[in-house]
């Protein structure tokens, strides 16, 4: 059962199509990554899910119903552009957002304190946001998204601007939420996080979906490469689309080999062994998410036009 689904969703701003016929779904307990460069339509998609803006066409179902603020009690949201009321105390800020999400004041406060303790901020609970460092304020904002233990956690570029320690903390919270059974949807253009965390991914390019599936399926889109060191000339052998020489060591030559579409590393190793080609090493390399992204989108993740 999907906790979130989009069917044929299009959003146009005047002549600009920000999202074009997007289909996707997310199941409970799943960590789902929205990948794309700047201007790919990630934030627009997330805002439509939250009913901050409405789609021009298509259908969105959130928790089985049309999007709307009435679901706020089951949703957590961390926007890309972050900010809090500067004069408000940390715990009051979390309590306020908890109450906006339908919690009673005491529960929201207790949950807020638990989050601040987990984030090592309990001592600063009564500090105004203006007196906190940027990193501390970011943790408080994360707490406002988590305070209601949401069934659907939506994070827009959550890692941007975080230091490595806070990035780790955020990764842990994402995993924790998913283990609890929440669906986590986050947008990013930093591939390492997506690679580490996501059960499934969606890659967008200028509003158009280029891929949706798990990492293995994504890797299937780009043939693996093989790095090997051999004593023979590997050019023009069957099963090898291209062989690039990386270096030489006496009679030995180090190659990077692109396989033909119908070939795989195991078959190549078997063929070379059968043909008596002497090998000193052999390493199969699956495509990294970064390479897959470049392969699908045609540019570096950050390189998309805004």
């Amino acid at each position: 059962m999907s906790i979130l689904s989009m069917q044929g969703v299009t959003k146009r701003f005047g002549d600009i199509t920000a999202v074009d016929r997007l289909d996707m779904h997310v199941a409970p307990g799943e960590i789902f990554g929205f990948l794309g460069g700047n201007g790919a339509g990630k934030t627009t998609s997330l805002r439509m899910i939250l009913d901050i803006i409405r789609p021009t066409e298509g259908r969105i179902a959130v928790l089985g119903e049309a999007p709307g603020q009435e679901h706020a009690d089951r949703i957590g949201f961390l926007p890309e552009e972050r900010g809090l009321y500067p004069s408000m105390k940390a715990i009051d800020t979390i309590t306020y957002f908890g109450r906006l999400k339908g919690m009673d004041a005491a529960t929201a406060r207790a949950e807020g304190m638990a989050l601040l303790e987990r984030f090592d901020l309990a001592e600063r609970a009564t500090s105004p946001i203006a007196d906190m460092s940027k990193g501390m304020a970011q943790k408080v904002q994360l707490a406002t998204a988590l305070v209601n233990r949401p069934d659907l956690l939506i994070l827009d570029e959550p890692f941007s601007g975080l230091d490595p320690v806070n990035q780790q903390l955020l990764e842990a919270e994402i995993v924790r939420a998913a283990r609890r059974g929440a669906a986590v949807v986050f947008s990013t253009h930093i591939m390492q996080h997506a690679e580490r965390l996501c059960d499934r991914l969606l890659i967008l390019r200028r509003g158009v979906k280029k891929f949706e599936g798990d990492l293995a399926a994504a890797q299937g889109l780009v043939p693996p490469t093989v790095r090997l060191t051999a004593r023979a000339d590997l050019a023009a052998r069957p099963g090898i689309a291209a062989a690039r020489i990386l270096g030489r060591d006496g009679d030995w030559t180090r190659y990077e080999v692109d396989l033909s579409p119908d070939n795989d590393p195991g078959t190549l190793l078997e063929t070379l062994t059968r043909e008596g080609v002497l090998l000193r090493d052999f390493e199969a390399r699956h495509a990294a998410l970064h390479d897959i992204f470049v392969h699908l989108v045609g540019s570096e993740p950050q390189g998309e036009a805004a």
Binding site: R47, L50, I52, Q69, A72, I75, F77, L78, P79, E81, R82, G83, L84, Y85, P86, F97, L100, K101, Q141, T144, A145
Partner: peptide
Amino acid sequence: VEERGSKLVESVIACVRPWQ
């Protein structure tokens, strides 16, 4: 002005409708 300037309005309108 402060609410929009401090970029927190998106968090708020994820919970309440703009008219609210």
